[in-house]
């Protein structure tokens, strides 16, 4: 784990950046309005995992406790199929792409197919907790706001997202559909996660933390709320407020704007898929 000193975290995206973002992809500014207003949050010192929880670590947890995830219990997991999400029998953290896929050889990849409850169960076993949304974002961009952990310009070689290794530009939803069609033809539903240190140090945040953009989207400990409760946001966000939890960082199948340090996604805590994982935090480290 890495120590993060106490400080003032500026959470949310500056107005000028939101304005610019609206012209760079398919959604209007209102889609990102829940990142506004940027506001200060005082954080106490804390510790955070250098990388997301791996398949190896989750294996140790389940071996020690006998824990079964929600996907294992219900017998199916969610993966993106040829053109949309699908409930795939046998898909779970041990078989991320479906029953025929195994994590053998991918033990240093992030665990996927974990619900918020699964993530909290792991954290409790490890004597840790999930990071709050503000802690997560502070670690991602540091004391000075920046849209990606490494700086102000996107670089596909610094994060595992849809553009990494893509043969054509993947800037918007239409591009993404073409990318996904090619990806699906080659890999099917097997997630394109990478070893958790594959993009370090070039993709690290100012605190030296890796995979804060891409690889897997990550659960936080924070219930989704609107930054200014008096403001009118897209009705979708009002409907999600108080019901869902915040997920951050984007994953291997996401576009650059979905991997920004201030990007917020509201997610049903019972949901899991093959692109969502987590990392842990602590008030004090387990070992000094």
């Amino acid at each position: 784990m890495i120590a993060v000193p106490a400080g003032t975290a500026w959470i949310g995206t500056p107005e000028a950046s939101l304005d610019a973002l609206a012209g760079q992809q398919q959604y209007p500014r209102s889609w990102f309005e829940d990142e506004s207003p940027q506001h200060p949050v005082e954080l106490a010192a804390f510790w955070i995992d250098v990388h997301p929880v791996t398949n190896a670590a989750f294996t140790a947890f389940t071996a020690a406790t006998g824990y079964r995830t929600a996907a294992e219990t219900r017998g199916f997991g969610l993966v993106y199929g040829a053109g949309y999400w699908q409930e795939t029998p046998g898909a779970c953290w041990r078989h991320p792409g479906g029953a025929g896929d195994r994590i053998d050889g991918r033990m240093d990849h992030p665990v996927v197919h974990v619900t918020h409850i699964d993530a909290r169960a792991y954290a409790a076993w490890a004597g840790l907790r999930l990071p709050t949304e503000a802690e997560w974002e502070y670690v991602a961009h540091g004391p000075t706001w920046r849209p990606w952990p490494w700086g102000t310009g996107f670089d596909a070689c610094r994060a595992n997202g849809a553009e990494y290794g893509a043969v054509r530009p993947v800037r918007n939803l239409e591009d993404w559909r073409g990318w996904w069609a090619r990806h699906f033809d080659e890999h099917g539903t097997v997630p394109a996660t990478t070893p958790v240190t594959a993009f370090s140090p070039q993709g690290d945040s100012p605190f030296g933390v890796t995979d804060m953009a891409g690889n897997v989207a990550e659960w936080t400990a924070t219930s989704y709320r609107l930054y200014d409760p008096r403001r009118r946001y897209d009705p979708l966000y009002h409907a999600a407020a108080g019901r869902y939890m915040v997920v951050r960082g984007g994953g291997w199948m996401h576009l650059r704007h979905q991997m920004r340090t201030s990007e917020r996604v509201a997610v049903d805590p019972a949901y899991a898929n093959h692109a969502t994982g987590f990392r842990c935090a602590a008030d004090t480290p387990r070992t000094a």
Binding site: W31, D34, L236, Y237, A239, A240, R243, Y244, V247, G250, H254, Q258, E263, R264, V265, A266, V267, D268, A270, Y271
Partner: peptide, 10 residues
């Protein structure tokens, strides 16, 4: 009835 995707936003 409010229909809400399990992942909202992003």
């Amino acid at each position: 009835l409010t229909v809400l995707p399990a992942m909202a936003g992003g």
